[in-house]
Nucleic acid binder design. Structure first.
Length: 884
RNA sequence: GGGAGUUUAGCUCAGCUGGUUCAGAGCAUCUGCCUUACAAGCAGAGGGUCACAGGUUCGAAUCCUGUAACUCCCA
């Protein structure tokens, strides 16, 4: 079949993805080979594929495909996590549309709807990964809420509770009033904002004087139970122990002294609201203050607040300021910058709130996790993330794991009406556990904890639980695949995931979960803003794939992604609408690269072949082979160092420049002449080897070309073909070729500057002490520069344009009158350069300290430079003299 | 307030343990080409005081100190 002029990815990508899948090439089962395992950082079920996923998963696919082609048993486990808060919000939204209120249905009914939602939408992101070419073992797809994984979560909880790591306690937590749940510190995003600082009068008991207090959250005064000043603040010393009236509610509270107060901030006097501020809570405990919880779980004012009951806290803030003003209690308002915490999931202002929650004590788990990262048992790429990791671990706090939601694993804790508590997996076990404590209960006398566990309490077990390491701790899969080889993830979730997975690895398996962690950067737009759904600055990935092909997009995203560093994705914005466009010059470059490969294929397929071997091509084939061996060595080293982005560019240059622009031009027969069978065979072999190196990065086109290049049996596919390994190479052969390239470039330059037509012939002569050095190349040089003569001569050729490479001088007769002045300038310029070069070496060599201190190899290199330079200098001077 | 990182060509980045006149690559730009694999292409060219100031060294983009700007994390 005739090949299309341009590469058309769409049909080809669909074809090969199904072919790979149908032939089980993604499938992995334990065998005698060495395993290479990656577990996907589970994207959350509510997600759609964005550029971050594309980056992350392309890298994983590159690593997996490379391993597969290197003879390893490559296993990439896909899956999703249940994203409790985000999903619950989606499900509540879906119910609302159907006219159902969450509060009107039971937990069981709600979960039914949630699973229904997950079945419908939860798989979208995984099918989108297929479009990218992700070679996951889909038969292994897991989900954090499926039964076995949920069991693992409960087992882990129970086990940690037995050890005393999991406990229940009353603490100040971050409350999301929209999702009505607690959040961990990591789920709160602090943003710097302009806020108002209100100065409020607190009247002294039985007096006309007052203390003025500055606060950004005036509504919380409903919960005030003291005022605090610094003990050595002379402004307030006479007031210690006196009482003031809390404005509007007129509650009498004490003035206490504590050196926690900053004298410089505000008025130096602090209102104390133990129920709604972490520091105030500590003060309250210390000074035995009453705690008044003035807020309901939805952020409205509670009965305990007395006033404004039922009003939202933000509305209340406005109203209370008005009322304070009316009452003459508002002194002034200032604008300040401060940080406000927002919920990562619902984007509402997070409220500190006192609450009874479940926590994990991290003290013991931190120890091995820190040790094994610091001693490189687990390696981070780039390494500097060890610092961040260490800092967090050194300052770790207990992990709040309960969430006031339904979508998640319900906490396996059981209570009697009297508040007695046991932790047990089932109700039956709970009853027995109570019995052991001497408490006799019936089924209907105990209740399970209403709350669920944090999603991250599921995902931290992922590298173990996907292989059923909890359910069946010694099964074949876990023994074979664990520990996994590499985790690829964004550095933004180093705490959520990476650290906690390491905790879990050592806690439950006494072994690391992975050998390497590869941190990717954040994907940013051209203004360096983080790409996000809310900003709408992310191009539509599927549209990009549609335009440039999956291979083109993979190239585009990888080409600009240094490990760990942020990545500026080059999608331009429409200057009028400010909308991001589904375009990308880098992906376009990737697409063009595909086209280049495609046309190299067309060239080879379009040639007529004759039997035999054209000896003239031997030098080119040899040169290409040596270069390829050298490149393959570099290729595998780059993988070991995870330098994927640079490697891809190197590969691009190697294929485009060395293979297509040089090699193919060298061996390409004259128009309408046939190629000899030997050269074609060798060329196809080289092409195939290059394809094997490129396949991990650009799987579809390489597979397609692989099949176009030869008759293949059903399972003879690029995806499972052995990748080219590095082998020894002859540097001398390579350098000779590079010198020839330099010659040709100079000759072409002369042609171009002389304005010669492509068809015009030139004559080339040269002087050389080693006339035979490039003999094998002469025919190729003549061909590539359209030179009818290429000969060594004993002395200079008159009226010729000249240039010098090493100590050889080249003379070119173009048939166009020589511009002597121009020629002289050119040579003089080069001579000046060489002489400067030589001077710098002379200075070095005459420096005794240099000669004495520099290593022998450096000295040797300097001497060689000197000799080469002097030879060139001599040749240039001679040519210049000739021009006089 | 504590910490990390970045600063090299118009843009995005390499430059690993100081050692070629070391200042690189890709893209973009400019010039000339529709040369039957490819105009999604070919052949060429120009472009930088390596943020700034000191220091160490025979030698610094590279190591040290300080300054500035930007980014991020934690409190």
């Amino acid at each position: 079949m005739e090949l299309t002029k341009n590469y058309e990815p769409k049909a080809i990508e669909n074809k090969w993805y199904s072919y790979w899948k149908d032939h089980g090439f993604f499938r992995s089962v334990p065998d005698e080979r060495e395993p290479f395992t990656i577990v996907i950082p589970p994207p959350n079920v509510t997600g759609v594929l964005h550029l971050g996923h594309m980056l992350n998963n392309t890298i994983q696919d590159v690593l997996i495909r490379k391993a597969r082609m290197s003879g390893k048993n490559a296993c990439w486990v896909p899956g999703t996590d249940h994203a409790s808060i985000a999903t619950e919000a989606k499900v509540v939204g879906m119910l609302r549309e159907r006219g159902i209120k969450k509060s009107d249905i039971s937990r069981e009914e709600f979960l039914k709807y949630a699973f229904e939602w997950k079945e419908k939408y939860g798989g979208i992101i995984l099918t989108q990964l297929e479009k990218l070419g992700a070679s996951c073992d889909w038969e292994r797809t897991r989900f954090t809420m499926e039964e076995d994984l949920s069991d693992a979560v409960l087992d882990a909880f129970i086990q940690l509770h037995k050890k005393g790591y999991v406990y229940r306690g009353l603490k100040m937590i971050n409350w999301d009033p929209s999702a009505k749940t607690t959040l961990s510190n990591e789920e709160v995003i602090h943003k710097e904002e302009k806020s108002k600082l209100f100065y409020i009068k607190y009247m002294l008991e039985d007096s006309d004087s007052f203390v003025s207090i500055a606060t950004t959250r005036p509504e919380t005064l409903l919960g005030d139970t003291a005022i605090c000043v610094h003990p050595s603040d002379i402004r307030y010393q006479q007031l210690h122990g006196k009482r003031v009236l809390v404005p509007l509610v007129n509650r009498l509270v004490k003035i206490i002294a504590d050196d926690y107060v900053e004298m410089e901030f505000g008025t130096g006097a602090l209102k104390v609201t133990p129920a709604h501020d972490t520091n105030d809570y500590e003060l309250g405990k210390k000074h035995g203050l009453e705690t008044i919880d003035m807020m309901n779980d939805d952020g409205t004012v509670s009965e305990a607040g007395q006033l404004y009951v039922g009003m939202d806290r933000m509305a209340c803030r406005k109203q209370i300021v008005k009322d304070l003003e009316l009452a003459g209690l508002l002194i002034k308002t200032e604008e300040i910058q401060n940080k406000i915490g927002y919920s990562e999931r619902t984007n509402v202002v997070v409220e500190p709130r006192l609450s009874l929650q479940w926590f994990v004590d991290m003290k013991e788990m931190v120890k091995p996790a820190l040790e094994h990262v610091m001693n490189d048992d687990i390696q981070f790429h780039p390494e500097r993330f060890k610092n961040t990791y260490k800092h967090w671990l050194d300052n770790i706090r207990d992990w709040p794991i309960s969430r006031q939601l339904w979508w998640g694993q319900q906490i396996p804790a059981w209570y009697t009406e009297d508040g007695a508590l046991v932790v047990a997996k089932t109700k039956q076990e709970a009853i027995l556990a109570f019995k052991e404590q001497g408490i006799e209960v019936h089924e209907n006398m105990i209740k399970q904890d209403e709350d669920v566990l944090d999603t991250w309490f599921s995902s931290w077990l992922w590298p173990i639980s996907v292989f059923d390491g909890f359910k069946d701790p010694n099964n074949a899969d876990i023994n074979y695949y664990y520990p996994t080889n590499v985790l690829v993830t964004g550095w933004d979730i180093i705490f959520f995931w990476v650290a906690r997975m390491i905790f879990a690895g050592y806690e439950f398996k006494d072994e690391k979960p992975f050998q390497h962690v590869y941190f990717t950067g954040m994907v940013r737009d051209l203004q360096r803003k983080k790409m996000s759904k809310s900003l709408g600055n992310s191009p539509d990935l599927l549209a990009l794939i549609d335009t440039y092909g999956a291979d083109g997009c993979r190239f585009g995203i990888l080409a600009c992604s240094p490990a760990g560093g942020d990545l500026i994705f080059d999608s331009p914005f429409d200057s009028k609408t400010k909308q991001v466009l589904n375009q990308s010059p880098l992906c376009e470059q990737g697409r063009n690269f595909c086209n280049k490969l495609w046309n190299a294929l067309r060239l080879l397929k379009g040639l007529e072949v004759v039997a035999g071997k054209n000896e003239e091509n031997a030098v080119a084939i040899d040169w290409m082979n040596q270069k390829l061996n050298k490149f393959a060595t570099h290729y595998h080293q780059s993988f070991e160092q995870f330098r994927l982005s640079e490697l891809l560019i190197d590969l691009y240059k190697f294929i485009w420049d060395d293979f297509c622009a040089w090699y193919l031009e060298m061996i390409k027969p004259i128009y309408q002449q046939p190629i000899d069978a030997y050269t074609l065979k060798e060329t196809i072999r080289i092409f195939e080897q290059l394809l094997s190196l490129l396949h991990p990065f650009m799987p579809f086109i390489t597979e397609e070309i692989w099949h176009e290049l030869g008759e293949r049996s059903e399972r003879d596919c690029m995806i499972v073909h052995p990748i080219l390994q590095g082998s020894s190479f002859d540097e001398h052969t390579i350098q000779l070729g590079e010198e020839v390239k330099e010659m040709i470039v100079s000759l072409r330059d002369i042609r171009a500057r002389s304005g010669l037509k492509n068809t015009a012939l030139i004559k080339t002569y040269f002087t050389s002490e080693e006339p035979e050095k490039h003999a094998a190349w002469h025919k190729k040089i003549m061909r590539l520069c359209n030179s009818e003569v290429f000969e060594c001569v004993a002395k200079e050729v008159a009226d010729a344009q000249t240039f010098v490479i090493k100590s050889n001088t080249y003379f070119v007769i173009t048939g166009i009158e020589l511009n002597v002045e121009h020629e002289r300038e050119k040579l003089q310029k080069e001579l000046t350069y060489v002489e400067g070069f030589l001077k710098s070496i002379h200075i070095k060599m005459s420096n005794e300290k240099f000669v004495n201190n520099a290593p022998a190899a450096v000295l040797e290199a300097e001497r060689k430079k000197l000799a080469d330079g002097e030879a060139k200098q001599k040749a240039l001077i001679e040519s210049l003299e000739k021009l006089q």
